[in-house]
Design a protein around this nucleic acid. Sequence first.
DNA 1: CGCCAGATTGACT
DNA 2: GTCAATCTGGCGG
Length: 199
Amino acid sequence: MRRIVPKEFYLRSTDVVAKELLGKLLVRTLGSRRLSGVIVETEAYFGVEDPASRARRGGDLAKTLYGEVGVALVYGIHRQWLLNVVAHEQGKGGAVLIRAIEPVEGIELMIKNRGVSKITELTNGPGKLTKALMIDKSFHKKPMYEESSELFIEYYIDVNEEDIVRDYRIGVSKDLNEPHRYYVKWSKYVSKRKVYKQS
DNA sequence: CGCCAGATTGACT
DNA sequence: GTCAATCTGGCGG
């Protein structure tokens, strides 16, 4: 039985949502076809108080970060698309970056989309998974709690608390002094690189 | 319209 | 390990 994660799920602290998204299924539909994967790595980003957040730069992304929860925030960087879900408490700003998934459905098509055959290389990075699932700017601001969006998140498995690792965010030039990256310890699909610096 | 930073990736030494 | 390709969005002129 499939059940989509409801909008209310995202109206909580960004950190809690980031952690609880682990083990959920990210689904992209193409007509009757499904491409999906288990979320195994996430990072929390906040509002203007976060030096690594796009909210710092103002504009549309800042508005989206502080806006309605449960919608996709698609952001382009270094010629990749990165997928976030807007999640924060009432009156605050924040979003969860989905950094890695484990392929479940539609693996053949993902291989075609990515141009690589090694399964573990398919979706073990934020830019990689958007390419594998054919996610681009057209999904920006679309609700992720409705099947009609063709991009949504379902309940899938429960991850044990002791299997969740908390660490500093990856790749940001100016991080906060607290870890905001979460990943599943046993997953082979977590992006390995660790290039964080302290501000 | 040009400039530039940046939550990345993959090719290469 | 190093490094550059190449894209988006904000901002200044």
